[in-house]
Design a protein around this nucleic acid. Structure first.
Lengths: 237, 237
DNA sequence: ATACATTTGTGCGTATGTATG
DNA sequence: GCATACATACGCACAAATGTA
């Protein structure tokens, strides 16, 4: 089913990311006629962009492109991974699949993925490159209950893209955990780095719309100057 | 001016953080009668908690307390700093003021704070402790245009609390930048750590409701196992 | 398996307040 | 003072998912 506010949000996000809007966005009223939607729906769409830190809003003035992300080279927006991944990336990302295994969830993984111990899971280990430079080591788990089939060819490209297109799954939300992580001997060897050297690690737990987790990943990023950006709204007092 | 949805959001957040709700929240309908508000207003309030990762929502079922943050000791929610700071902290935070200076913005700071070069600014350096343990070194700048007065006594407590209560300023949103930062010689000396040792550093730029930045800070956190949590909604496809 | 009530999700409308220019 | 634009708050209707009888 096509959701109006999602469609509009996608369209607006595209225009922001493709620099069709460089400073000011059309007013809510203009967007209402442009997209044939009510004010609530338009604001719903704009809320998504706002929460992701793509735009700023000023009462009485209008909506503006957020430039916090522009200019810096190694800034990654935690809210949509734009910057290093999909849209904002300058060079395409290639993935070297180190492992693609069918395993069963142990107790720890079962708790994380909220599944039975022994539930079938894909375990994938990938090295990710951009512009011929290693930038991340990713270990990821997919519940076969939701993702029944994966192949090496799929894992060399974008797994999420495959999932969304083929299984018509939509990711509703995610929990992200950021820490400093010191590489293990094995990880250091794989990535040609020093053992114990500190990296930024992002753990990610992705949920379907019924709040069921279907994917868990741990990714270490190797840019020394990598900056993770995140936009916060509505402080509570 | 008191905003209904903000009041309700504060009330609900309190109840979640004080474990008045342990699993399921009342339904939207129940909250409507409890707070005497329309469904839109209630949903507005719940949206805030949802975006901050305090609650989960399941269509047809209800709203639930997000347990992603519970259980772990050193998890800090980037969206509201609960965990290490205000509500969720087990021990009160004390601040040792190392510096409290009146300076003028140089070119770099002026660009960050969107002010004139030479604009008067407070520069504060603090060591922050919890449970008699050093946990952060903070360097922060406040534009005097908005925060005309600060004292050592105020800085030893919560600056934000003072600002909100006395200047009736409300923080609308913030940009956060997370990196690995290696301590300088001076910083290492102050904090009794090894020079060059890696820490998690959060840069924060806080905005007033007209999108004017009024505060910029850089804080290094010293828990080796500190984890930064962040909740992401509404992936765009 | 079905039907039904409950609960959240989407979308529309309207009115009024507040900030900007 | 005025027009414009975003902010808050109310209302309604129907869709979709869930839980239960």
């Amino acid at each position: 089913m096509v959701l109006k506010y999602q469609e509009i949000a996608n369209s607006l996000a595209d225009k922001v990311n493709n620099h069709e809007y460089t400073d000011k966005l059309p007013s809510e009223g203009e967007l209402m006629t442009e997209y044939g939607a009510s004010r609530n729906t338009i604001r719903n769409s704009l809320d998504i962009l706002y929460n992701q830190g793509l735009i700023k809003r000023i009462q009485g003035s209008g909506y503006f492109v957020n430039t916090a992300l522009h200019g810096e080279d190694y800034v990654m927006n935690l809210a949509n991974k734009v910057g290093m991944n999909s849209l904002g990336v300058k060079y395409p990302i290639t993935s070297q699949v180190l492992k693609l295994e069918s395993i069963e969830a142990d107790e720890k993984l079962a708790e994380i993925l909220e599944c039975e111990v022994g539930a079938p899971v894909y375990y994938i280990q990938r090295l990710r490159h951009s512009n011929n430079k290693l930038y991340a080591l990713e270990k990821t788990y997919y519940l076969k209950e939701f993702i029944p089939y994966l192949s090496k060819e799929i894992c060399e490209k974008s797994i999420f893209k495959f999932i969304i297109e083929n299984y018509h799954i939509s990711i509703k939300n995610a929990d992200e955990y950021v820490t400093i992580y010191n590489l293990s001997d094995e990880e250091a060897k794989i990535t040609d780095r020093e053992s114990g050297s500190p990296t930024i690690r992002i753990e990610e737990l992705n949920y379907l719309k019924n709040e069921r987790p279907f994917n868990y990943s741990r990714t270490c990023y190797f840019q020394d100057d990598l900056t993770i950006y995140y936009h916060v709204n509505n402080y509570l007092n």
